[in-house]
Amino acid sequence: MLVYVIRRVALALVTLLLLSLIIFAIANVLPQNVGRAILGPFAAPEAVAELNRQLGTDQPLVNQYLRLLKGIVTFDFGTSYQTGQPVRDVVTTTLVNSSKLAVLALLLTIPLGLVGGVFAALRKGRLADRVIVTLGLAGSAIPEFVTSTFLIFLLGLKLNVLPVLATWPEGSGVGTQIYYLLLPALSLVLVYFGYIARMARAGTISALESDYTRTATMKGMSRAAVLRRHVLRNALLPTISVIATQTGYLFGGLLAVELIFNVNGLGRLMVTAAKAKDLPVLSAGVLVIGVIYMVATLLADLLISWLNPRIRLGATS
């Protein structure tokens, strides 16, 4: 088990390294004069050179990448081209708000997805199953911003039950914040419910059809006991990794959702940075989202290995 944990963490570090390399490579795929881009075409060449020196963008690419790596370790991503603020500060402030939204969405999606999936599996082929599967399929196929417009139209405009902008008054309590975040969270729920439900359903079906379930049935157990003791644990193990990957992708979905609902979060920050070609902020945002995915999958793998005796105790002696 310890060997597995060490190996898995080491792999995650390698992924992190590659991740930073990919982001750096994309950000520098075209040769560019950053100073010129910021100061505009009419600035004096001396001023441009001076700015490039300050930003370090006159250095060879290798040095620039090493600086980025150092930045990851020291949590220092330079300054925003746009505002001149340290990137670290803007990212952390917005990340807090994004996390509130993400956590709320996950707290709603995970139980719904699990219950929905298991329920569909038990009703396999019947109406309830088809409804859940089709809803999940439709929900997860539609982009977040489209789902958001539907919800705004329906719950915000027509029924007028929820605020359509997530701009809660300064100093609001948790309850109020949740109230304001409910609509954006719901549009994320609609999208991510399908993945979790589908995996939970598939896992449950395969566990129901397994030989060990038949063994339990032949012991004379009631169906409820068979489900509780033998099916669920095996069924939901694979769902854990889906939840982890969806957590990562959910942060990606924040881009559009935060823009629409005007959440002061990481996603909106990145879109603004994109419009201003503020690459340090944008790259840092991409890196953070990649790291969130990486950490989520790492935790999921460790959890699975702990729950699954086959990994925890190694293969056949």
Partner: peptide, 23 residues
Amino acid sequence: SRIVEAFLSLPVAVVGLLALVVL
């Protein structure tokens, strides 16, 4: 596989945003 894994940790829309800003 490591490289693919690294790419998979980035939602396509997110890294696409970065790439299209640059390109």
